[in-house]
Design a binder for these strands. Sequence first.
RNA 1: GGCCCAAUGGAGAAGCGGCUUAACUCAUUGCCCUCUCAAGGCAACAUUCACGGGUUCGAAUCCCGUUUGGGUCACCA
Length: 553
Amino acid sequence: MVSDKELAELIFPEVKESIEDLEKRYPLRNLPSGAEVTRFAPSPTGFLHTGSLFTSMVCHKVASDSNGIFYVRLEDTDTKREIEGSGLQLLEQLKLFNIVPSEGYLGDHQVGQYGPYIQSERADIYKVVIKHLLEEGKAYPCFCSQEELDDIRAKQEKAKIIPGYYGPFAKYRYLNNDERKQRILKGDPYVIRFKSTGNHIHKIKVTDLVHGNFEIAENDMDIVIFKSDGLPTYHFAHVVDDHFMRTTTVIRGEEWIASLPIHLELFKALGWQAPKYAHLPVIMKIGENGNKRKLSKRLDNEAAVSYFLKDGYPSEALIMYLMTIANSNFEEWIFEHKFEHMEEFKFSFDKMSLEGALFDMGKLNFFSREILSKKSKEEMLEMTLKYSKEYDEKLYNLVSSDPEYFKKIINIEREKENPRKDYEKLGGLYDLISFFYKDLYEEYVKTNGLVYNEKFSLEQVKEVLSALKELDITKDEQTWFSQMKSIGESLGFSSDRKAYKANPEAYKGMIGDVAEILRITLTTKKNSPNLYYVMQVLGLEECHRRINQVLSK
RNA sequence: GGCCCAAUGGAGAAGCGGCUUAACUCAUUGCCCUCUCAAGGCAACAUUCACGGGUUCGAAUCCCGUUUGGGUCACCA
């Protein structure tokens, strides 16, 4: 009769190393107490998902708050779904959010003593562990075909019992080693399954950093740990990698809670201590049927981080927003700290909500405006150049043609205690500032014309405008405004809101109406930054030119 | 369907048995202010914490049940 050891040797003759060798190769990390080792473990199956950004942000934060290590491991064991180049892309995008691993897979190279950090390069490590499990009789080759599997499932469904490969249904679990050897020699395809000793009637107590303690049924499935393509499954790779990479806290999405018993059983079978776990809630959105559902890359723009990048949201805004979801006390904290130095905020798992939050675009916009308003004109220029170079050619040409002029435009009421919040994101900036440029202004007027308030006739508009030519912008804003008021008053516009409201018939309109006529004339828009400063930037000559142009029509 | 997790306003949430006639933020709506918008100021916005029962002098908070929602049940992660 073939022994377990002989069978293991038959399957993995090339494996000479032992688990002890691996333990030596990957020694315990020498870190100060309390230091957490966390990891972000993406699959290279597409662009960065907003949920992944959320998870990686938390991983990064937990490590940096504790002076620990944050590393990235590429989980590329699903060769069918892999998208070429997406691993690099993922890392590049993380970097834009200041999430930079100190170890691991960095996109174009790997750093660290615990590698390789790409699972497909770790086959020899997995094999050592699997051979060990085989030798101990804790794993076995399974020759079950897809048809057989389907058959088992169909029977189980019919009998209304738990589907899966377990207990009496795990037919190849009961083959003896002679039979196994024979089939292997014959060349029958097989996978390696873990031989579970659990019973789902038993409950195990688990502790989760986010959810606290709860009970869950023991695993009793003989799960596949080694696929026929020679690569491990997620469950097995997670256990082996996080053990040998010496991860202290596994932070991942809530969808993994259900497979926790599998992972815990694997750790136990190998005699290893399991890491701490934190299962994060998933970011949701209201679906077509009115119910909440996970943000979907296919259906929701906001599921892809690239969407925000393309739209020109500052990366801090997204991170700040995600942090409000991550920790309920963050919002008050960041208000107290005037939206600055968010890296000093201390993250904690027990301030995390258990329920998946609905993605709130409105709140992101709020943070984004806040952040953009706090930037200096130099930072705005730099950001705009960088953004537009990649995403908005028209804007890039406009801004780079005269950076100093752009700084003047963007600096209107910026450097003050409560700066203006005109800009929500860099996307669409072109349309907001184009009127500052003579050619673009002309082009707009030619194609769209200027639309004034209907309650004033063209004659009235002209009357107001010709009077407004007197406006002096060489003095301070105060003087300018009093001047506008007296011009307005002389034409029959009220500058006293109360008086106007009490007796609207007595006036042609409010001083605001006068300002609106000027504003539309100069900016083509009903909304614009502070008119006095707009005029400063445009220059008196250009202002008069625009006014005269309207008057001549 | 089984198992697990969750449930406070339009959204994010605080709340941990009496201090709650439920904090804070976003959104929305009104009003005020030397121009629009923004900012700022002032208001409004859950008589009630999914529902039912219980424990208690006292419950959003503890217990039980129901309901609803989410997750998961692959040689995918």
